[in-house]
Simulated scan of single mutants.
Amino acid sequence: MPDAPTAIRTGIIGFGLSGRVFHAPFLATNPAFELSAIATGSPERAAEARAAHPTARISSSPEALLEFALAGGLDLVVLASPPHVHREQAIAALEAGAAVVIDKPFAPSVADAEAIIAAADAAAAAAAADAAAAPATGRTPAPRPLTVFQNRRWDGDFLTVRRVVGSGALGRIHRFESTFERFGAPKLDRWQGRIGPEQGGGILFDLGSHLIDQALSLLGPARLEHVELTRVRAGIGNEDDAFVSLIHDGGVRSHLTMSRVAAQSGPRFRVLGDESAFSVHGLDGQEHALRQGMRPGSAGYGTTPESEWGVVGVEGGVPALAPVPTEAGDYPAFYAGVAASIRHGAPMPVDARDALETVRLIEEAHRRDRG
């Protein structure tokens, strides 16, 4: 029998919400990976990391983890760190020979994103040359050893939008509306609320990275048509309420609304066609489940109750409104794709060049807002 494939030795830089909730559980429950190292400067989070992942090396600095990667200890580095350090950390990890997953926002500027992609291309070329010189290494290098964690491509409601749009049931789509709104105190104790947009702060880089990525992946390339950025709460370093209008090359308009100060919210998605429409309220439940400690693969993970399904049809007309079962949410698919890329050379699940286009639109939005 062939030997079992070697686990992909993985390190995470950052163990806040992103590293703790959105990355570590998927790495720990996927047998393709070994969670080998975690870096966090917080003693409290270090204690949490030791308790949850007792076999992982816990270090107090990104530099220590990157030195471990340089010494050949890691195959993959996950950046769950603030966006303004992504360029430095990603290039260091790539030069150490590791593949890299970068949490969104990918980078705070087009220049940073392009520099990371260039480093990934150089690393891919070097890995291919090494593999050609020593083909017995047993692992096919990833074609581009870089990807961006745009996990909300695998939200159940967005997967449902894809299915409904792809079915043709709505006719010709003319407007796509996506709303992601929350309500709460400003995040003054976290980097999201302290840093400015030049470092990747603000609701547009945060939630907007998801909404723009979803719109582009569903409807194709687009240009910025209109933007509104507002600081509602006092004392924050960036906008906490935003609206973006895009016009896609195919003619569809995307209206994207995001907020941390919305005490009531509109539909999560509304898709208007010339024959019918689809709408759904509420948020995909995977984040809430993960925050509550549910592990990926547990019974009920990713499922949406019937009471929260969306509807398709015409209000008071034909076809009549009818419920549409929500697809199962599938964040685990992202890391399954990463494993396939590292082990077998498949494309990464999110092309970093797609994420670059999202950064390009966000940068343009901030430039217009400044006048």
Rank of each mutant, 00 (worst) to 15 (best):
M1K: 13
M1N: 13
D3V: 07
A4I: 09
I8R: 07
R9S: 12
G11L: 13
I13K: 06
G16S: 11
S18K: 12
T29D: 12
S36C: 05
A37P: 05
I38W: 07
T40K: 06
S42Q: 01
S42L: 02
A47W: 00
E48K: 11
A49V: 10
R50W: 02
A51L: 10
A51K: 14
A52G: 06
P54S: 06
T55C: 03
S61E: 01
L66H: 00
A69F: 09
G72C: 09
G72D: 13
G73R: 13
L74I: 10
L74S: 11
A80E: 08
A80L: 14
P83H: 05
H84F: 12
H84M: 09
E88A: 14
E88I: 10
Q89S: 08
A90T: 05
A93Q: 05
A93H: 03
A96N: 01
V101P: 00
I102R: 00
A107I: 07
S109K: 00
A113K: 00
E114A: 04
I116H: 00
A118H: 01
A120L: 02
A123R: 03
A125E: 15
A127T: 07
A129V: 13
A134E: 12
A134P: 08
A136G: 10
A136M: 13
R139N: 06
R144L: 15
F149N: 13
Q150L: 14
N151H: 13
N151V: 13
T160Q: 07
R163V: 03
V164I: 15
V165D: 06
A169V: 09
L170K: 06
G171L: 08
I173A: 02
E181K: 10
R182D: 14
G184H: 03
P186K: 03
R190T: 10
G193Q: 04
R194Y: 00
G201Y: 00
L204W: 03
H210S: 14
L218T: 04
L218Q: 11
P221I: 09
A222L: 09
L224H: 05
L224W: 00
H226N: 09
V227H: 02
V227E: 03
V227C: 05
E228M: 11
R231W: 06
A234M: 11
D240E: 02
D241A: 12
A242H: 04
H248R: 10
G250E: 08
V252A: 12
M258S: 05
V261H: 01
V261G: 02
S265V: 13
P267L: 04
R270N: 07
V271D: 02
L272M: 09
D274T: 08
E275R: 15
E275F: 12
S276M: 07
A277L: 12
V280D: 05
V280L: 09
H281N: 15
H288C: 04
R291P: 01
G293D: 12
M294Q: 12
G302W: 04
T303P: 00
T304F: 00
T304R: 07
S307F: 02
S307K: 11
S307H: 09
W309C: 10
V312W: 10
G313D: 06
G317I: 09
G317D: 05
L321Q: 13
L321I: 03
A322L: 11
V324T: 09
P325F: 04
E327M: 08
A328W: 07
A333D: 04
V338M: 07
G345I: 00
P347Y: 01
M348Y: 01
V350H: 03
A352Q: 01
L356Q: 11
V359A: 11
E364C: 11
A365T: 13
H366Q: 09
R368F: 02
R368Q: 15
D369T: 14
